[in-house]
Design a protein around this nucleic acid. Sequence first.
DNA 1: AAACACCTTGTAGCAACTTCAAGGTCAAGC
DNA 2: GCTTGACCTTGAAGTTGCTACAAGGTGTTT
Lengths: 143, 143
Amino acid sequence: MKIGDLARHAGCTTETVRFYEKEGLLPAADRAANNYRSYGARHLERLRFVRNCRALDMTHEEIHQLLALMETAGADCGGVNELLDAHIQHVDLRIAELLQLKQQLDALRQRCQQQQGVDACGILLGLAEMEASARPERHTHLG
Amino acid sequence: MKIGDLARHAGCTTETVRFYEKEGLLPAADRAANNYRSYGARHLERLRFVRNCRALDMTHEEIHQLLALMETAGADCGGVNELLDAHIQHVDLRIAELLQLKQQLDALRQRCQQQQGVDACGILLGLAEMEASARPERHTHLG
DNA sequence: AAACACCTTGTAGCAACTTCAAGGTCAAGC
DNA sequence: GCTTGACCTTGAAGTTGCTACAAGGTGTTT
């Protein structure tokens, strides 16, 4: 299987595949005589796994850790559970942040009900007055 | 006021101030005899405005547009309202995406209740089996 | 032989900064 | 006078997860 076939089967682009190889998320492929990358079913499984993790918004670092845990022969999956729990916490946290943000935005939006001169616009006044409590550090990679 | 003072008053770093200047979010500062940047109250107001917008997760582009709208003398604030409405939609969308993600993650987490060999771990099986419906394009800048 | 789709490598770009390197300026302390 | 330390200057590179070239080699079809 050439890189384009692999990519199509996994629903991503060839560039992404090469990028994952560089990142160590996929093992370096075998090369055919013409120097083209050559893949088998195992590679496809692995790539699908990685893409599934990405679909769940895991970082490359999290995926690396997960792969390492999987490949430790005879290990139990406690580490896997912990990793997933931590990831779920990231998501929960980001949801909470965005809900709070939404409240602030709705409140700001309330301050201007009709079109008027920009000098009188409640939204602009609100943006000028706000005291952006030194913005919280990110505890999550989710933007 | 030197750049460090300005930054402290606005709750950001000097690097951020210089970066905003380069981005055109702050006008280029006057220079003192020693070539240090020199700021007044107007600059602080402007920087605070920008930081408040950022605290609401607006992009630099959105902030640029907002500043342009504000500086159009005699304009009404219809554009401001539209911009804010669009931004609120971005946030709503991202919240919806994350809530769906959370559901998927919770379902996956359910698949492994106790520690066991990695070969039997329901989470890893789930990650292998998932069919990552070709991941949706982003309609929002919020990660 | 030319057209076309595919492969190779390497580099640059996105957003919004942060970090680093290498140096200039200024006030205080010995 | 000389050093220490805190501040300032510029410019380049790193972060994350890709995407988009550019410049060229390979392979099949017409």
